[in-house]
Each structure stands twice: as structure tokens, then as C-alpha cells.
Nucleic acid binder design. Structure first.
Lengths: 250, 250
DNA sequence: TGAGTAAGACTCAATCTGAGAATAACGAGA
DNA sequence: TCTCGTTATTCTCAGATTGAGTCTTACTCA
């Protein structure tokens, strides 16, 4: 009877080997036109000195709360800070293979975050060695974090297709060109400016005009651009599909 | 130093409240043209007598192995059985809010499964009270399983749009009409037969012809249909989108 | 002031989609 | 056996969408 063993085990955790639960966070942001991920340097064994995704043990809180708390600690932002509240966080998946942590069985619930430009993590505190790293240079991470990061990147690329979450990388007001730069950075390819513009404005609820414009043109010239804010759509319909990836389909 | 506390906690699990890890499975199949989910009746408190998703504690195995083992136990199929191997299983998400299980902190890693027609779970053994229930009638489940099921259904509906996993509900060979019936059951709406047929055959790698046909027409008449097997595509490109759901977008 | 850049509006052909209809093969009951 | 209802498969056609360019302007920087 499985149900019975469930009952007993629940009151006798020692009957099963101990398991620890952590959250690890893949927080992405865009800096200088390139996609960056927040990494910390491990101060202790195992993987001492290696880069790793920020994370920590789950306390008496929901998983989402644990993720947001860890994010606040690692970025050095106060929990109440506005910039932190604007970070989009969603659960990515759970990694729990035996042996992924050499010390004991650790289940890691990974979260994926989209952050607008944030300051460098402040020195001191938990995040002494945290920093933003271009995703192309984030390799050979501790534990199975290479896999977690890869899964997070793929999820992020897909999410930009059918949700308006690209706006989460930007401030409250943004131009279509800035939004296009987000897509280009996440997808790693240039997009046709005219078609992107047409598409974004044609999807209901993606963006809405603020009525204003930038106060000056771009750094290298060009006219002032109109400003938009995120619309009320939760899904893009029709979706904004990545350029042909037939090669990757099989 | 978070890294230090991590290190210590890992060697002293008693320093944190105990956590149990389970897998729960949303296995879907199609019977009589309607989408069904496998449920078990709980024999013990809490939620004694209520229906619940099948699941159990994770042992010294990967999460995916735990999910497949539980599936085998609850369906009463031998682990080596061919029908079981053809069930597609993927991780759905993890539910771990404090209080979701009144006994202790339980993290449940939910898996989503697509199964071809399987026999009724055999009586006796673990699955004494397991059975297939139409998803419309699966309500008021134990724990937070209503939410888990709802998340699983939404994931399944989305997966049919951009992956060929609809074929996982069918046998090794199937007709386009049977595949259309899968989509109709999962999406809960009728599809235009001609357009569906055109679309399925035009997406590269979705299905490939076996060269054969059914040995007789449909139960209510009609010509013999050509037989197909699943193709080698991992993603449908372009996707097979659900009929307008603009209402659900916001 | 001139060169270079970028926003935004258009154009156009190719493709895709939804809706409907036509054709033909079958099963079942009269 | 004949007729009718059902279903597989193919076609048609108009409308919407997409990718690739072009054009006009407004601006910045040197």
C-alpha cells in the first residue's frame, strides 16, 4: 500500500534519506546590447572558485518567495526596492538527479528571471563576488548549472515569441527600437526594423503608446522615437516568431 | 556568508526542517474521444477517500525515473512493457508551498504524461483504486492537485501546438483522422478536417506515410484512410495553432 | 553644413489560413 | 442490391500575414 507508506514516511522523515531543497536563479538582463546572466563565485567546496548561479536553501516560505529573496540578496537590492519588484520571475524546472551535488541529495528548483538594467551587485554582504557575465562567456559553471543556464536561455528565447515579457528587460517606458534590441540580444540575430515595428504595433495588447517621445534622437543620429509602455496582454497573438530555425527542428 | 551556511547545512540536514520530495503525475489519455486523466483514491488521511493524482516518494533515482516507476506501479503495467515505454513523460513543474501537505513540508515535482490507450489499471497491487476519469469530471482533488491538473492540461494544449506529441496518444500507426480526434479532444473543439489534413502533411517531419491503409472504413462509413507513423521532427514548424483564443489572451 | 543613422510609413510578391465545396470510397440498413 | 449517410482527400479562393526592400524625414556628430 503506497498510501500507507506515504503516511508513515511523512511522520518519520528519517525513514528516507535526507533531501535538501534549494532555489537557483537564472537572472538575465541586457547590458551593452548583449544578454548577461548573474553569477556568483563559490567560496567553498565543492566547486570552490567556480562560477555558479545564485541560489540558496528554501526556508519557511514559498518557492517563489525564496527565489525573490535570493535574488534580492545576491543583487544587493533591498527587498522593497522598485527595481526588484519589476523583475519577472517564473519557475524554470527542477533538477534533482542523485549525485548532482556530491555532498547529499539536493533538489534544486530553478527560477528564470528577466531584469531591467540593474546596478552592479554591491560589494559586501552575501553577494561579495556576484556579477553580470555575458551568457556567451558563462561556461563550466558549478554543479549542473551549465544545463540549467542552457535550459533557461532556451525558455527565454521561446518566451519572447509568445509573451510580451521582452518588455521586462526595459524600463517603464521604451521605444520600439529598444524593444527590438532586446529581441536581437536574446535571439542572437538582427531583426528587420520595419517588419518588427509593424508586428509589435499590430499585436493587440503588446505595447501601448504613452503619447510622448524621446527627448533627443539616438546616439548616432536619427529622429526622436515614440515612447510606449507594456500593454495588458499576457500572450502575444499572433506570436512573434523567430526567424527560420528549420535546422533546429529535428 | 551564504556559501558557508550552505556548506554546513548540507552536512547537517537537521539544521533545516525536514523536507520530503514526491513526484505526482498527470497522465493523460484519450478514451471514447474524450481526454481522461489517471486518478487514484486516497486510502489514508489526509484527504482520505478523495481522488488524487498518482505519485509517491522519490527514492535513490532520478526524478524522471521516479515518475516512470510510479506510472508503472499505478497503471499496473510491467516496467518493461512496450505500452509503458511509449508513454511520453516530461517534467511539468514543482509545487512546494508550505502547508500544501498538512503533515510536513512536501515538495512535489509534477510530471506530465501522454499515453496511448492503456488497459484499465489492474485490480490489486498499488493501484487498487486507480482509474481513468474524464478531465471534465476531475475536480476537488486532494492537496493542490486541482491546480496541478489545470497546469498540466494547459501545458498539454500548448504542446500540441508546437510539438508532434499528439502522436503519443496514438498507436504506432494512425490515420490523420485519428490524429485530428486527438487534437479535438485535447483542445475541446472541432477542427476543419480539410485544413487539418493539409496542415499536418505540410509540416516537415510531423508524420510519414507507412504506405498502407486501414483494412476497412470508419465505423459509420467512409473510405479507408491512409496510415502514418510519427515523423522525426521534435518541433512543428510552422506550428499548428489553436483556433482563435483572443479572449483568453489578456 | 554635410554625412550618416534611425524611425516610421509604404509597397509588393510569396505564403499561409479559414471556409467551403467537390469527389469518391465505404458501411449499414432497406 | 440499392440508397443514404459518413468520412478521407483534394481543390478553390479570398483575405491575412510575412519577408525584403524602398522612401521620407528628423536628428546627431564632426
Amino acid at each position: 500500500m503506497r498510501a500507507e507508506s506515504t503516511f508513515l514516511a511523512a511522520y518519520d522523515p528519517a525513514g528516507y534519506p535526507p533531501v535538501a531543497v534549494t532555489v537557483d536563479i537564472v537572472v538575465l538582463t541586457i547590458r551593452d546590447g548583449a544578454l548577461h546572466v548573474l553569477l556568483v563565485e563559490r567560496a567553498e567546496h565543492p566547486y570552490r572558485g567556480r562560477s555558479a548561479l545564485p541560489g540558496g536553501f528554501v526556508r519557511d516560505e514559498t518557492l517563489a518567495e525564496a527565489a525573490r529573496r535570493e535574488l534580492a540578496e545576491e543583487t544587493g537590492l533591498c527587498p522593497g526596492e522598485a527595481a526588484l519588484a519589476r523583475v519577472h520571475l517564473e519557475q524554470l524546472r527542477t533538477y534533482g538527479d542523485p549525485g548532482r551535488d556530491p555532498r547529499m541529495r539536493v533538489m534544486s528548483v530553478a527560477y528564470l528571471g528577466f531584469a531591467p538594467s540593474l546596478p552592479d551587485p554591491r560589494a559586501g554582504g552575501d553577494a561579495a563576488t556576484a556579477g553580470w557575465v555575458p551568457v556567451d562567456e558563462a561556461r563550466e559553471l558549478a554543479f549542473d548549472h551549465d544545463t540549467v543556464l542552457a535550459d533557461g536561455l532556451e525558455r527565454a528565447r521561446a518566451k519572447l515569441e509568445y509573451t510580451p515579457l521582452g518588455t521586462a528587460f526595459l524600463g517603464a517606458e521604451f521605444t520600439i527600437g529598444e524593444l527590438r534590441a532586446v529581441y536581437a540580444a536574446v535571439w542572437g540575430e538582427q531583426l528587420h526594423a520595419g517588419n518588427f515595428h509593424r508586428k509589435v504595433l499590430s499585436v493587440p495588447g503588446f505595447v501601448e503608446s504613452t503619447g510622448g517621445t524621446t527627448s533627443r534622437g539616438g546616439e548616432r543620429g536619427g529622429p526622436r522615437a515614440r515612447l510606449y509602455r507594456a500593454g495588458d496582454a499576457a500572450l502575444l497573438h499572433p506570436a512573434l516568431l523567430r526567424p527560420t530555425r528549420e535546422e533546429q527542428v529535428r
